[in-house]
């Protein structure tokens, strides 16, 4: 019986003065303390009783967390506390990382995106996380501050299951960096929810085409949301596209491979059989979109 609290249970709001202090606190209270960014997952889960945090450690004010910077040589860095609306409204992001903008736009509602962050979306590791696919395909690397100081954590292998990542107690993801994108790339995020906007994904498909020395002249990347315990790379489909000239039949073949390569579950949002079909159709439509776009 789903019966959450009317409000949040008793807890301490903690606002450390530095990353060191925050990390130390999280280590000392491992299992009871949570780093707190936009709170849009955190507050819901603590109210639900799914998380039993006694301490919410507000790291938003710490150094660099609220910065968004673009360097034409190095690329983009988004602080962990930068809300999605700010990312989506940034001209440099719009120009160089349009797939990230599109993904942000699909998350919940405007007022939720005023608080929700991309780094938060990644660290919460929901298989349905809308911005994860684009973050992977743009080559996002997390900058994590832990008990041993800063380290870089690529998203490959980062996700371990629903809500599970390689982050350890004391780790604070401070920002995510993306290398400069190729000017001729194309990226799309196609999401199917029950409502046209605002819902969690029944299926989400991020596809990207980047110029490369392949038979088609492009690399293709495909990441699937809501069809596996973690964001799922459609490797078989990518391999097909890597090795062939692209036409509608090859795209259909790749889409079929994406469908065959996933084993989604039945849940309240959708059935497994439907999800598989949607993986195929949305992958096909997404690939057609990016293929049309890069050839223009």
């Amino acid at each position: 019986m789903h019966n959450p609290h009317p409000g949040l249970p008793e807890l301490d709001y903690v606002k450390p003065a530095s990353l060191e202090e925050a990390s130390r606190f999280l280590v000392e209270h491992a299992g009871e303390a949570r780093p707190f960014l936009g709170g849009t997952d955190c507050i819901v889960r603590i109210r639900d009783g799914a998380w039993t945090a006694k301490y919410m450690v507000d790291v938003k004010g710490l150094e660099g967390m609220k910065d968004l910077s673009f360097d034409p040589q190095k690329g983009l860095t988004i602080g962990a506390a930068v809300p999605m609306n700010k990312v989506a409204a940034d001209p440099a992001v719009q120009q160089h990382y349009p797939g990230l903008v599109e993904a942000c736009h699909w998350v919940a509602s405007y007022q939720l995106r005023s608080r929700a962050t991309i780094v938060g979306n990644i660290c919460n590791a929901s298989p349905a996380g809308d911005t994860i696919g684009a973050s992977i395909l743009y080559g996002g690397v997390l900058r994590v501050f832990g008990p041993q100081g800063f380290r870089e954590v690529p998203l490959d292998g980062f996700f371990k299951g629903p809500g599970k990542t390689t982050l350890q107690p004391g780790d604070i993801a401070a920002s995510i960096s993306f290398p400069l994108s190729h000017p001729q790339h194309a990226c799309r995020y196609l999401k199917l929810g029950r409502n046209k906007l605002g819902d969690l994904a029944i299926v989400g498909v991020t596809v990207m085409a980047v110029p490369a020395r392949t038979p088609s002249g492009y690399h293709f990347g495909i990441v699937l949301a809501s069809v596996a315990p973690v964001p799922l790379r459609a490797a078989a489909a990518e391999a097909i596209l890597e090795s062939k000239e692209i036409d509608e039949a090859v795209i259909a073949e790749a889409a079929q491979a994406a469908m065959d390569g996933c084993k989604p579950i039945n849940d309240t949002r959708g059935g497994a059989a439907y999800r598989k079909q949607m993986v195929r159709n949305l992958t096909r439509n997404g690939l057609m979109d990016v293929w049309t776009k890069v050839r223009k």
Partner: peptide, 9 residues
């Protein structure tokens, strides 16, 4: 900025 005030401490 518009926010859900139930989601802000």
């Amino acid at each position: 900025d518009a926010v859900n005030s139930c989601m802000v401490l």
